[in-house]
Amino acid sequence: MRRNRSDLMQMMGSAGDTHILTKKWAVMQRVPVAVRLVTCLLLSAFAFIVRSPEAVAVLAGINVLWFVLSGLPAAFVFKLIKPFVMQTVVLLSLYLLQQGYPAGLSAGLKISCQLLLTLVPGMVLLWSTSPSQLAQSISRFLPAQAAFVLASSLHFFPLALADMTALYHVQVLKGARLSLRDLMCPWRWPDFITCLVVPAVVQALALTTEIATAAKARNFHNGRRSCWQEDS
């Protein structure tokens, strides 16, 4: 069954293609996304298997190569490591408490590296692959309805957000305390629920009904569909 890739591709489109890089050594850009996905999963899996510090170092080297060949700029290294800093600190502290110095330090560092290496291949893949390419790969494996839902949820999200913003403005003028600062006070939460959350959910339900009806009015169904060729 031919999947509808055009709607997901449309949604992502060239405006979102900020990850296409032009470095000469970015050979991974020329490799199909599915192959890159499998490579990423294998690299992550190896991080679970390696035990000795030497093996961890070799795997780290392979990941550095993976990073470089994906064409990401060097500044991304910091972006890659930053989310793991706190986790590494906590792990090292626990290992030092448990095993003392220096055994705890080396064991903690090894495990932290392994944790990093389970997640880095995936992050590098997503940052170096354009959303439209990812969407195209994902949609191949999704039923038509799921692909449509994924694309439409993102496509219509700004409309839902605009509706909610209009509602927010109206309720603030009425006197509802809805700013982030106001929400630090738990006694304001009931008004937040009543004035914003519930009407926003009702609005979202109404909007989804409208969208579904509109799609069915254009004969949409969860079955065989063809694909508009944008570039031909």
């Binding site: 309805q145 839902v149 439409s152 949820s153 219509f156 839902a160 989804t208 579904a212």
Partner: peptide, 12 residues
Amino acid sequence: LNDALFIGFCAG
């Protein structure tokens, strides 16, 4: 379909 879209909105 409308429920599927609501699920999509929650995911979004």
